[in-house]
Design a protein around this nucleic acid. Structure first.
Lengths: 253, 253
DNA sequence: CTTGTCGGATTGTTCAACAACTGTCTAGGT
DNA sequence: ACCTAGACAGTTGTTGAACAATCCGACAAG
């Protein structure tokens, strides 16, 4: 039903044709207005244009986007479900501020999913690893150019393609949510180079372990990888919190 | 921010009081008509009152529930995101019919999360296992009474409390969604006794492994457990599908 | 048996208005 | 100077109605 497979009838030679076409149609008429608005806002939030803690006014956005309030609210709901906005009753929607506790929680589930996916992989057809190769190559290229934003994007796509190897819709969706939230944390931190550069190399190392079918070792490596990433992000977050409370003098000295 | 913990201030002796009260208030003022409607429908769907494949008419529900169409649609969105309803453009919302592929996908993520949570547990304070004890006891009690619906409910709560041991909000929420979908699959299958009875004993066995701190063995046991559960559900689903296509004669014999 | 067309029914989207709630500010008391 | 109660303005929650777009079955023509 909800599965986009065209596997209803004959699995004849037309299957590829039909399925590709069906997917295209689906992508085209995807219910539009609300989702288009959601796409727009999603980009803004992930890109960091909207700072964490900021409230998104319905009235204001309705004027700018020329959509009805109900439609806008539907877009809000989509993004809220993705974790990119938080909704507080009678107060509106806000760009979430990930505190340390939230970040730990986020990485907890991320480790669970990604490591488990990798551990269960075993040896697999090299063709399926192609998207991962492309992502690593893109990251290396962007790193050479010094475009750390692009490096971050490529790294995120690497992880998305990594979990996609499990071939599970629900895992893909859950991972997508988590990775979007991770990017949110990224955007709240300065110095993107220090944040992304080390993981270009580690992604390649991870990929090579997968090519060799060393899924168990790959899972172990990924575990450390994510541990380090979390620690670094946590440190950056703590620094920022320190600055914030530091530059404003105490009320009663 | 979004975390509903009341652990902001002093962890003094009042913590229990305050937290309980805060939870109660929160449960009360989460009114938001849409959420109340969603709660109502959620129960109906999980309980199996609404058969899979059934369409929920907006007009009809608006009349019965005395809410506006927009509000009802908001409730639909909430449940759609939980996987308890599917939305087909210009056709309405339906109670999903889980086919075999979907069920496999569902259990794939369920295994990933539950097993990983258990594997990482290690030895832990017996107090934290108390909810699990209660759930197993409730299931055994209901089984003695022959109330297999209650057995199913207790088993589901056992798993919810199991993953709660990880102490992660995101894991709790994801598991809740998955378990709701599992119940959906249950309701689509007859003979609840055969479906639930074996797992009462297996839940107790699992719990005892946890009491002994044998988290690695517990994870392994849980893996088999879920494998069996999936297989049984798949078989039941296949049977039902067979009956359906069987009682209608072929068009061109 | 397939293809084209029509009409009823249902959903998608928008709008405007009112009710309910939140955070802030002020007035008054201690 | 500090605290509390109450009013105020601004925002969100909810409703009902309206119109456009789309689906579905039926019916007719090739």
């Amino acid at each position: 039903m909800a599965a986009p497979s065209g596997a209803d009838g004959v699995p004849g030679p037309d299957a590829g044709w039909l399925r590709a076409m069906a997917d295209e149609v689906r992508a085209f008429d995807r219910s539009s207005t609300a989702e288009r608005v959601a796409d727009l806002l999603r980009r803004r939030v992930i890109e960091g244009d909207l700072p964490p803690g900021r409230r998104l006014s319905e009235e204001q956005l309705v004027d700018v986007l020329h959509v009805s309030r109900n439609t806008l609210r539907e877009a809000f709901r989509l993004l809220t479900h993705e974790g990119l906005l938080v909704h507080r009753l009678h107060r509106g929607v806000f760009v979430p501020e990930l505190d340390e506790e939230e970040l730990v929680d986020l990485y907890r589930l991320r480790r669970t999913i990604e490591c488990d996916v990798v551990r269960r992989l075993g040896r697999l057809d090299p063709v399926r690893l192609r998207p991962l190769h492309d992502d690593v190559a893109a990251a290396e290229d962007a790193a050479r150019r010094g475009d750390w934003g692009a490096v971050g994007t490529a790294n995120m796509r690497f992880h998305q393609h990594l979990v996609a190897l499990a071939g599970s819709r629900r895992i893909d969706e859950t991972a997508a949510r988590l990775l979007a939230e991770v990017r949110l944390a990224f955007s709240a931190v300065g110095s993107p180079q220090r944040l992304h550069e080390p993981y270009v190399r580690r992604n390649r190392a991870l990929l090579e372990l997968l090519v060799d079918g060393e899924s168990e070792r790959a899972a172990k490596e990924l575990e450390d990888y994510l541990q380090d990433s979390e620690a670094e992000l946590l440190a950056a977050l703590r620094d920022r919190a320190g600055e914030r409370s530091g530059d404003r003098p105490r009320r009663t000295p």
